[in-house]
Amino acid sequence: MTPRSPGRDNRLVSTVTFPRIVATDLDGTLLTSTGSVSPRTRQALRAARAAGAEIVFVTARAPRGVQEIAAQAEATGTAICSNGAVVYDLATDEITAISPLDPQAARKVAEALALALPDVGLAVETGRNVLIEAAYTRRIEHDVAFYREVDSVFGVDQPIVKLLALSPSRTADEMYAAVSDTIGDLAEVTYSGLEGLLEISAPGVTKAATLDRLCRERGVGAGDVVAFGDMPNDLAVLLYAGAGYAMANAHEMVLAAAEHRTLSNDEDGVAVVLEDLLGRAA
């Protein structure tokens, strides 16, 4: 499925002032490989805010996964989480909007997954917790406290913010190729890593669509957005923004499609671009 980019008709980059929104992915983008915000990046974000920009995290992470990062980055505004399915207020620790996958559609997606990937294991991100079936063997250390083991992810009355599909025998690229056409318009299918994990959201729910809605609420055009990302789930955001930058460490699909590139996450690639833009706007 080709990433959809709302607002592309209004992508002319502003050359007069500093962008009004800095939309950035976290893992592999803003964060170093150790999962931290470097001093240089923190300073660049501080300078961007001083120039009038709003920093918006646009991440696959659930809200619980962004609080520590927000503290490091000195961010207190809005985060777009769970690939666009959740809008989260960093200052109040409140989920202000949620766009879950319809349970019946999710069941149909699960059936398609099982046919194409017999060893698939399922989990559901609810926004605050993760429901996991026995075959879903992926464990993230800092998330273990939020896991709840269930016989079936469809037997619990919780919102399906993201349906997670894990295959121990395939890469995410291979999984995507195997199921994307079958799932079709039932859901949005993407991924944010190379391991065998797909992330599935409600139709039309993407990072870019939610960012577009946030921009419209603020009266901001796409041309006043600068964006950064590294994985296929970031691509629509990079295409939406007036200036979308792929990290040097980005997935080959992202590198091939993005108009701009910057240095890797471990080379402060986000900070390098922001410093340059700040210099031009001075």
Rank of each mutant, 00 (worst) to 15 (best):
S5E: 12
L12E: 06
V16C: 14
T17K: 15
F18E: 08
P19R: 08
R20T: 14
A23L: 11
L26W: 04
D27C: 07
V37Y: 03
R40W: 04
Q43I: 10
A47V: 02
R49C: 12
A51L: 03
E54T: 09
I55R: 02
V56L: 02
R61C: 00
R64C: 00
A71P: 00
T76F: 01
I80L: 05
C81W: 01
C81G: 03
V86G: 06
T92N: 11
D93W: 01
I95E: 08
I95S: 09
P100K: 04
L101G: 11
E111C: 05
A112W: 09
A114V: 11
A116H: 10
D119G: 07
V120D: 06
L122C: 07
A123L: 06
G127Y: 00
N129E: 14
I132A: 14
A135Y: 07
R139K: 14
V144H: 02
A145Q: 08
F146P: 00
V150F: 01
S152P: 11
V156G: 04
Q158C: 11
V161A: 09
V161Y: 02
L163D: 03
L163F: 05
L164N: 03
A165Q: 07
R170N: 08
R170Q: 14
T171N: 06
T171M: 08
E174C: 00
A177D: 15
A177K: 11
I183K: 09
A187R: 11
V189T: 13
V189Y: 02
Y191G: 01
Y191N: 05
G193E: 11
E199A: 03
T206H: 04
A209C: 12
D212H: 14
L214P: 12
R218P: 03
A222T: 15
D224G: 12
D224T: 12
V225H: 07
V226M: 12
A227E: 06
G229A: 10
D230G: 13
M231S: 13
G242N: 05
G242M: 06
M247T: 05
A248R: 10
H251M: 08
M253A: 15
L255Q: 13
A257P: 01
A258I: 02
L263H: 13
D266L: 06
E267N: 14
G269N: 12
A271G: 04
V272Q: 15
R280C: 12
